[in-house]
């Protein structure tokens, strides 16, 4: 298996939901190779964040995976015991969260929040971990890393916090990072800087990156490959270059057309046409029926 992350036929449902309720994730498959950036796009509620959460083992309690495999670095996470899985993920993957304002513990200093994984999970010495944290804070261009490490989160701006979180994600040199809409909660002015920073860090460290976003503009700047999600189903899996040249699915094409173009502010908004929605809904429903017939989970 050449891909670093490989999701195969992943299906999830709402726990306790009555039989026949549509799945939240519908036999999702996707690969991310080492050093590859895969965009995961879709409207809100399409399940894109849920895939990222499944990879990191942080699905809400109400969501239950009913089939599929998540191969991370050659092992299937879903076949491991919860504590094995946790350690595995902690050692080889990381999350860049959506909202830097809520993703740092307000009552702990910045330094330990970066170094804790290195010390507790990976067994580094405290001195090594702190040196590494300073180095990374420097790398994400935070002035005076030593001072920032002694600060509490509320003393930093949103952009600074997101830099800290990026540094923290790269600290253990993970081979796989999930970025969950890492710029949506930020000011527009800061968004670009953070996006560029993530791209640079990814390139420098050669990390596989699963980039969850609803913004095709961001995808065109950062990603190599792309999965388009609709209602929990991957409707298109393609290279970004090919996608922007010619989307392979009617829904993707409509999504692309609906993206506002900064280069042409007068173009106006083109909502996804109702006919396209109907078509993709029919497609998803057909796939659902076929899956049920397959008898996997009747």
């Amino acid at each position: 298996m050449s891909a670093y992350l490989s999701i195969r036929n992943l299906s999830a449902v709402l726990k306790g939901a009555p039989k026949g309720t549509p799945r939240l994730l519908r036999s999702v498959s996707l690969d991310v190779a080492a050093g590859e950036v895969r965009g995961l796009v879709g409207e809100s509620g399409a399940g894109k964040s849920m895939i990222g959460k499944a990879v990191l083992g942080i699905l809400p309690r109400a969501v239950q995976v009913i089939e599929g495999e998540i191969w991370l670095d050659g092992v299937d996470l879903l076949r491991m015991t919860p504590s094995e899985r946790r350690r595995r993920i902690g050692a080889s993957a990381a999350l860049i969260p959506q909202d830097p304002m809520t993703a740092l513990n307000p009552s702990r200093r910045i330094g330990p929040q970066i170094t804790d994984r290195l010390v507790d999970i990976l067994g580094w010495t405290r001195a090594d971990a702190e040196a590494r944290a300073r180095e990374l804070l420097d790398e994400v261009r935070i002035p005076d890393p030593a001072r920032v490490m002694r600060s509490y989160p509320h003393e930093l701006s949103g952009g600074m916090r997101q830099r800290v979180l990026i540094a923290s994600a790269f600290a253990a040199e993970p081979k796989m990072i999930v970025a969950d809409e890492p710029t949506t909660a930020l000011d527009v002015t800061v968004q670009k800087q953070i996006l560029r920073l993530i791209a640079q860090m990814q390139a420098r460290h050669g990390t596989a990156l699963l980039f969850v976003t609803h913004d095709l503009g961001v995808v065109s700047k950062v990603c190599d490959t792309l999965s388009v999600l609709y209602a929990g189903k991957v409707v298109e899996d393609t290279r970004v270059r090919d996608f922007f040249a010619a989307p392979g699915h009617a829904y993707s094409a409509a999504l692309l057309a609906a993206t506002p173009k900064y280069t042409d502010p007068d173009a106006g908004l083109n909502p996804v046409p109702a006919a396209v929605i109907e078509a993709v809904q029919a497609e998803v429903a057909a796939a659902e029926a076929a899956w049920r017939k397959g008898g996997a989970h009747g």
């Binding site: 990191l56 083992g57 942080i58 504590s83 946790r86 350690r87 595995r88 993920i89 902690g90 050692a91 993957a93 990381a94 999350l95 969260p97 959506q98 909202d99 809520t102 993703a103 740092l104 513990n105 307000p106 009552s107 702990r108 804790d116 994984r117 507790d120 999970i121 979180l165």
Partner: peptide, 23 residues
Amino acid sequence: DYVTLARTKGYGENHVIVREALR
């Protein structure tokens, strides 16, 4: 979110409750 983030770092439920949430 910061509790969820701590989970991705490899920490278990007990640790997350005591160190991240309790304080």
